[in-house]
């Protein structure tokens, strides 16, 4: 479904941030993306949500080469991707409802469909009481949940999340991870960038590990598999 072949990325004339990145994500895969700061995680995420195009190599998403795709085709690819940003990126002048409704409105859904879907998902993330609240009056955790609700409301085929539980307490964090797993079981491919070793150990998924722009694909940790076996 998603294929990177010898992908390189550089900004302007600077050094290559990602070098010869090659991996494949099948439909329904769940991967953690980890690596030290500056390893290129954010750049790889940008390539995955088409925030940037590769400088070299081939990136194929949903059967389409993103470099040769037209702008309209790229927009259609983006509509199949949900992104949870580390800094949430909620629009401050819009209510929780309107922020979550954005992807559906972009897709051209009818107002009653938008209303029903947003109300349902805000109830699901436990923010039904804050439907008219602006992000500025919500806590970091609540904003994070709105960002997650916004990312998943369009039922994306690929969900990208950058430190999605970084601002959440453990209970909510694990609840959100369970939510991601639920989505994954329904067929959504998920990539979560995280530094949280405990979480990666707890949830048993393969890892994409970046170091100085080079990517390694690692299987689930043996410790986790051991835990799962017993």
């Amino acid at each position: 479904m998603i294929q990177f072949e010898h992908v390189g990325l550089r900004y302007d004339v600077g050094p290559e941030i990602l070098t010869d990145v090659t991996f494949t994500l099948e439909q329904g895969a769940f991967h953690f993306l980890s690596g030290p700061s500056g390893a290129g995680k954010t750049s790889l995420m940008k390539l995955l949500y088409l925030g940037h195009l590769p400088t070299r190599g081939v990136v194929s998403m949903f059967g389409q080469d993103v470099v040769t795709a037209t702008r309209e085709q790229r927009m259609m690819i983006r509509q199949r991707i949900g992104v949870v940003f580390q800094d949430f990126r909620l629009l401050p002048h819009l209510s929780a409802f309107d922020n979550v409704a954005l992807p559906l409105r972009i897709m051209g859904k009818k107002p009653h469909e938008v209303r029903n879907a947003v109300t349902e998902i805000l109830e699901w993330v436990g923010l039904a009481e804050h439907i008219n609240a602006k992000p500025s009056i919500l806590s970091g955790g609540q904003q994070q949940r709105i960002a997650i609700a916004r990312a998943v409301i369009g039922k994306p085929r690929l969900l990208l999340a950058d430190e999605p539980t970084g601002n959440l307490d453990d209970v909510i964090g694990y609840r959100i991870m369970s939510l991601f797993e639920q989505l994954n079981r329904m067929g959504t491919t998920i990539v979560i960038a995280t530094h949280n070793q405990q979480m990666m150990d707890h949830f048993n998924h393969p890892r994409l590990t970046l170091d100085k722009g080079h990517l390694a694909v690692l299987p689930p940790s043996p410790k986790a598999r051991l835990k799962e076996a017993f």
């Binding site: 509509q79 199949r80 990126r89 954005l102 972009i106």
Partner: peptide
């Protein structure tokens, strides 16, 4: 710009 980038990421067309 940030809002536009966000809409772009969500798949909003230039026309939209």
């Amino acid at each position: 710009q940030n809002d536009i980038d966000l809409l772009h990421v969500m798949g909003a067309t230039d026309a939209y």
